[in-house]
Simulated scan of single mutants.
Amino acid sequence: MSDNLRKGLGDQVSEKATPQSQKSYTQVAGENLSGAADKVAGAVQPEGDKSTTQKLGDSTRSGADKGQNQGSGLLDQAKEGLNNAANTISGKTSDASKQ
């Protein structure tokens, strides 16, 4: 099985980047169907036959799937990291302005 039978990484990113509220029911259904088919294809395709980008996409999706099962998706983890970074920066800025 080759990567040309798989959903491209760019397609996956653009689907996730577009808010669900801006998609039609047919778009959502199509994305769900193609996403499920891609998961199956990724699971049965040997690692040695995958391109670097497909390996990255599969591992990222696997991490996101595990995170969603635990109640915290990859997006939530990224938001938390950005919030922590912002708090650290604002705290240091605040400390510097007191001196």
Rank of each mutant, 00 (worst) to 15 (best):
Thr53Ser: 15
Asp76Tyr: 03
Ser2Cys: 11
Glu31Tyr: 07
Gly67Asp: 01
Gln77Val: 06
Val44Pro: 07
Ser72Trp: 03
Gln12Met: 14
Asn87Ala: 07
Ser21Val: 12
Gly48Arg: 05
Ser94Gln: 07
Asp49Cys: 11
Gly42Tyr: 00
Asp76His: 07
Thr88Asp: 07
Met1Leu: 11
Gln54Ala: 14
Lys98Tyr: 01
Gly91Thr: 03
Leu5Asp: 12
Asp49Pro: 00
Gly8Ile: 00
Gly30Trp: 02
Ala96Cys: 03
Ala85Glu: 01
Gly48Asp: 09
Leu5Pro: 01
Gly10Phe: 09
Ala85Ile: 02
Asn69Ile: 07
Gly71Pro: 04
Asn32Leu: 15
Gln70Pro: 00
Thr53Arg: 12
Lys66Ile: 13
Gln70Arg: 12
Glu47Met: 13
Glu80Asp: 10
Ala43Asn: 12
Asp38Glu: 05
Asp76Glu: 10
Ala17Val: 10
Ala43His: 14
Ala17Pro: 01
Asp58Val: 03
Pro46Val: 06
Thr93Asp: 01
Lys16Ile: 13
Leu9Asn: 03
Tyr25Thr: 12
Leu33Tyr: 14
Lys16Asn: 10
Lys23Leu: 09
Asn4Trp: 12
Ala37Cys: 07
Gly73Ile: 01
Ala36Val: 09
Gly71Asp: 02
Val40Met: 14
Leu82Met: 06
Glu15Tyr: 06
Tyr25Gln: 15
Pro46Asp: 11
Gly91Ala: 07
Thr60Gly: 08
Glu80Ser: 10
Thr88Pro: 00
Ser24Arg: 04
Ala85Met: 05
Asp58Asn: 13
Ser14Asn: 06
Gln99Leu: 08
Asp95Ser: 08
Ile89Ser: 02
Thr52His: 12
Lys39His: 10
Pro19Ser: 06
Ser51Glu: 09
Lys39Gly: 11
Met1Ile: 07
Gly63Asn: 12
Ala37Tyr: 11
Ala37Ser: 11
Ala64Leu: 03
Val28Ser: 03
Gly42Arg: 01
Ala96Ile: 09
Thr88His: 05
Ala41Glu: 05
Tyr25Leu: 15
Lys7Thr: 11
Ala36His: 11
Leu75Asp: 08
Thr18Phe: 02
Asp65Pro: 03
Gln20Val: 12
Lys98Cys: 00
Thr88Cys: 00
Ser90Cys: 00
Asp58Gln: 14
Gln20Trp: 10
Leu75Ser: 13
Met1Asn: 09
Asn83Trp: 01
Ala17Arg: 10
Val40His: 13
Ala17Cys: 08
Asp49Met: 14
Thr60Ile: 15
Lys50Gly: 03
Glu15Met: 10
Ser51Lys: 08
Leu5Arg: 13
Ala64Trp: 04
Ser51Arg: 10
Glu15Pro: 02
Lys7Ser: 05
Tyr25Lys: 14
Lys50Ala: 06
Gln99Phe: 07
Ala37Gln: 13
Ser21Pro: 01
Ala36Ile: 12
Gly63Val: 05
Asn84Val: 01
Asp3Pro: 03
Arg61Glu: 13
Gly48Leu: 04
Ala29Met: 15
Leu9Cys: 11
Glu47Pro: 04
Gly30Leu: 06
Lys7Met: 15
Gln54Phe: 02
Leu82Gln: 05
Ser94Tyr: 02
Glu31Arg: 04
Lys55Tyr: 01
Gly57Glu: 08
Arg61Phe: 09
Ser72Pro: 00
Ser72Phe: 05
Ala17Trp: 05
Lys16His: 08
Gly10Pro: 00
Ser90Pro: 00
Lys23His: 00
Gly35Met: 06
Lys79Glu: 07
Ala86Lys: 15
Ser24Tyr: 01
Lys55Trp: 02
Asp11Gln: 13
